[in-house]
Nucleic acid binder design. Structure first.
Lengths: 129, 129
DNA sequence: TGTATAGTTAGCTTCATGGCTAACCAATCG
DNA sequence: CGATTGGTTAGCCATGAAGCTAACTATACA
């Protein structure tokens, strides 16, 4: 009951593993059984199953057992959710860039008005924008 | 020296932690010193520094020390790199959907031609499409 | 019915992660 | 100079992740 990890935590953690990313990529191309999924990996089945389980609890993958075969498929919603996060960050980032550009323009104008005064000895910049 | 983890591994692992996502979000709005970044978090500085370090080695964050202040800023390239991964997956996914739709259309036509024959006992689908 | 197949459970190791304290530079400031 | 501030290094601890083997369940096939 102490485990308070958000959906995004789980999704990114799931995708941080190359095996699991490969599974997701494979599932993007269509559903598959656990055995089919495990085949290309040089790994004991129980270890592989753990990856499947991580993907499931993250919500990225759904599965259903029929007979003795468990078929896995991708849940596109979860994937889109994570993609959204990036797009939100990018939106903020780009807004900042716009503001920064505006700031540079302002600087430029001020410079035009003031001309070059001191011999610029600042190779590094400390400015907080 | 045995640690062979790809850039994407590191980026997703970095983003799997809510503290680090918060740092990235904050940096999206502009660069900041370590102290400024650490301020909202109830965490000892060395612990916080570890997060900064993880973000740096993942390539998401760059920093530069001037005087006794270290200023951090976002590396948008890394963020875009991760976003790309999602878009690639989505492209594959959507291509599959298109193929699936085509497949359903084909099924429909076949059904039209054949009518309902056997009492369909296949609730499950096994097809590798 | 008996055997092979497909997953699953249990339990163990090892190493990485995330947190802490304490002590330590190195710039600033009074 | 001496104290403060901002960051860093070192080292400890608890937890969780990623792998394994061995043994088990349950379906499918002959």
């Amino acid at each position: 009951m102490a485990n308070q990890s958000s959906r995004l935590d789980q999704i990114f953690a799931a995708l941080a593993d190359p095996t699991r990313r490969a599974i997701v990529m494979r599932l993007c191309a269509g559903e598959a059984s656990v055995g089919e999924l495990a085949d290309p990996f040089d790994m004991a089945l129980p270890s592989f199953m753990k990856h499947i389980h991580v993907l499931q609890t993250s919500g990225l993958v759904l599965s259903e057992k029929s007979g003795r075969v468990r078929t896995c498929r991708l849940s596109p919603d979860a994937l889109l959710g994570a993609e959204d996060w990036f797009q939100q960050q990018r939106a903020i980032w780009e807004a900042r860039l716009d503001r920064f550009e505006a700031y540079v323009m302002k600087l430029k104008k001020e410079k035009e008005r003031a001309g070059a005064k001191r011999p610029s000895r600042t190779t590094k910049r400390k400015g907080s924008e």
